[in-house]
Computed example of a mutant assay.
Amino acid sequence: MPPFVHALIDQLRRRGLPLGVDDCDALRRALAAGFGWTSAAALTELCVMLWAKTASEAAMVRAAFARVEAPQWTLAAPVADAPAVPVPAPPPSVADGPAPVADPVPAVVEPAPPPVAAPGDDLPAAPPGTGRVDTRLVLTPQYPLTEREIVQVWRGLRRPTRHGPPVELDVDETLHRSARLGVPVPPVLVPARRNTTRLLLLVDRQGSMTPFHRYVSHVVQAIQRAGRLSALTVVYFHNTAGSADAALLDAIPDPFDPSIDAVLPALPPLRDGTLYQDPALTVPVSLRSVLSLVTATTGAAVISDAGAARGTLSPARLLDTVALGKALHAAAGAVSWLNPLPASRWPRSTAEQVARHLPMFPLTRAGMYQAVDVLRGRPFPVARPL
């Protein structure tokens, strides 16, 4: 392979694209078969077809090609010298008489110059006067997790059950029935296993979540493209989905104590709230109607900083959040919370108190694995479960 491809692979691996020996071998075989030699753009698109699985990964590969210091991609191959071709003499004319016989002079045909590939149209033009591309200006979004990593995590959220028409062969039952009857029997068919897990995703928007909008949208889109869930419902809210009983604020024994354990049994589940169907929070939908579609096979996941970004504790927001958690627990099979801030930012904030009642994890790869385990039914200890 060309030497600059190794630098390209190193750069893509640093960006989170898991390229291995098989991917390098696939490129080597494609080049040996004659693909990707016409231009630099053809080589770029060849690598996109071999390595990229999504549109974001394709953009990552193209941007990496623009940043790598690559020589001009040409078809400069050694061409063998052509053999000498004798040029026949013209036939003699009758008027001139017999022409003297002369030895033929061999004429050497010059070999054609090797074809040179034109520069790719998709690569950025070099700035005038420099002769090279300013690689600092080639920018692509680089999130903490790639789409492939997020999809690998959420594909583990499965509850396979047999559902639908019988289309699969049950070998054990067919053999058992044939042995019991002693005669050949028709094959026994059973329905195929299907993932019946449903997911309700509640995403906090605006306010302190504004710096995380692009990353959270990247995570949500990756979950939607995973395509392994029976149903996925994404709704949005701002800080809280509704207001709990404000009278409980006065019932807290110590206003300086951040915990609400004393009033937790009297806190009713939040039923009358407002969610939104779009990230801009312009299409409202009632919380009661969303909860009415939740079944026992539905897992509920909340993506919010829960006040950790500002580092403050709001008793009113804590009551509203715990009331929403009670409503989700009563309707869904399991509830987990994903926080875009690390756990070191939770102390002395509302998020620290919410984590005492709901399983809360950072929005990292390890945190999402833990959240998926909770949604699959694995218990997670909290200080004061709802």
Rank of each mutant, 00 (worst) to 15 (best):
R15L: 12
G16D: 12
G16Y: 09
L17E: 03
P18V: 11
G20H: 01
R29W: 01
R29K: 09
R29L: 07
L31Y: 00
F35C: 07
F35S: 10
G36Q: 12
G36A: 08
T38K: 09
S39Y: 01
S39F: 01
A40N: 10
T44H: 04
T44D: 09
E45F: 11
L46H: 11
M49P: 00
M49I: 12
W51T: 08
W51R: 03
A52E: 00
T54Y: 00
T54I: 02
A55F: 00
S56K: 02
S56I: 04
E57S: 06
A58V: 02
A59L: 15
M60L: 15
R62N: 11
A64S: 15
F65Q: 13
F65G: 05
F65N: 11
A66W: 04
R67Q: 08
V68D: 03
V68S: 10
V68K: 08
E69Q: 11
A70K: 08
W73G: 13
W73T: 10
W73K: 13
T74V: 03
L75T: 08
L75D: 12
A77W: 14
A77Q: 15
P83V: 05
A84V: 10
V85M: 02
P86C: 01
P88E: 15
A89S: 13
S93V: 06
V94D: 03
A95K: 06
D96M: 10
D96N: 08
G97I: 09
A99V: 07
P100M: 14
P100N: 11
V101P: 00
D103M: 11
P104H: 10
A107Y: 07
V109C: 11
V109L: 15
P111R: 11
P111L: 13
P113L: 03
A117K: 06
A118V: 07
A118P: 12
P119L: 02
P119N: 01
P119Y: 05
G120W: 02
D121I: 06
L123F: 15
P124L: 11
A126P: 08
P128H: 02
P128A: 09
G129W: 10
T130A: 14
R132V: 14
V133L: 15
V133R: 14
V133Y: 01
V133P: 05
T135Q: 13
R136Y: 04
R136H: 06
V138T: 08
L139D: 00
P141N: 12
Q142D: 14
I150P: 01
I150T: 07
V151Y: 03
V151N: 00
